[in-house]
Simulated scan of single mutants.
Amino acid sequence: MTVTLMCGPSGSGKTTWAADLEGAGAVRLSFDVELWRRGSRPLTATPELMQEVDAELRTRLVYLVRAGRDVVLDLTFSTRAMRQEWRALVLPLGVVPETVHLDVPHDELRRRLTARSDTAADDVALTPEQIERHLAEFEPPTAEEGPLRVVRVDPLA
């Protein structure tokens, strides 16, 4: 059984990667999908709704791991503290999550995010100011945090 933490700024391709794992049998958990299903978006959701979704996703993660299911967490995991909190949920269950960090050049991220249509949970548009703040606040994961796979995305390849 595996738990994968998808890590990278918005637009890095986390959902595409997570969908591939989902196609191979993992259960995908996503804030964006849950918020969209409830008629909200990550940047406009109330703190109460964010807390509710967070609690539900954490509960589902533990339930799925106890049931022996592979899980991919399709979240940004933008801070070390956030990654540590989610790892701590499954470590007592004998699972050491792997972090998959999609490392994409910032110019490519800006291009992708600017092209979003805001018509689906995984296509939420950001303003230029939100994009810059998101990129500035993102803390790349390090090997000291636990198993880490860094995928460098070359947009010209």
Rank of each mutant, 00 (worst) to 15 (best):
C7L: 11
V96Y: 01
S12E: 07
R60H: 04
L126T: 04
V72N: 07
R80Q: 10
A26Y: 09
G94F: 10
D32T: 10
T16E: 05
Y63C: 00
T2E: 07
D74C: 13
V95D: 00
L64V: 13
V124Q: 12
T59N: 06
L91Q: 12
R87F: 07
A19T: 14
L135K: 06
A67C: 12
T114C: 11
L109E: 06
D123P: 02
E139Y: 08
L29W: 00
L93G: 10
E132T: 14
R152F: 03
L49C: 03
P105S: 11
S12P: 12
R66S: 07
L93D: 07
P147V: 01
V65S: 07
L91T: 15
G94W: 07
T99G: 07
A125W: 07
T44W: 03
V95T: 12
A26V: 13
D54R: 15
D70T: 08
A55Y: 01
P128W: 04
L21V: 00
H101W: 15
A24W: 05
D154V: 05
G13V: 12
P9V: 15
R116D: 02
L73K: 02
L73N: 06
D74H: 13
L61W: 10
E52Y: 04
W86P: 08
A24T: 08
V150A: 02
V90M: 08
F138A: 09
P140K: 05
R110L: 05
Y63D: 09
R69A: 14
D107T: 15
V72M: 09
R133C: 00
R116P: 03
D20W: 11
E139N: 09
A136N: 08
L73H: 02
K14G: 07
T99R: 06
T2W: 06
V3I: 13
E132R: 14
L109A: 09
V62F: 09
D74S: 12
A19V: 11
M6N: 01
G68C: 13
G13N: 12
R149F: 01
M50A: 10
P9S: 14
P140R: 06
I131P: 09
E137T: 15
T46L: 05
Q51D: 13
V96R: 14
E85T: 14
P97F: 10
W36R: 04
T142S: 13
L64C: 10
L49M: 13
V62T: 14
P47L: 00
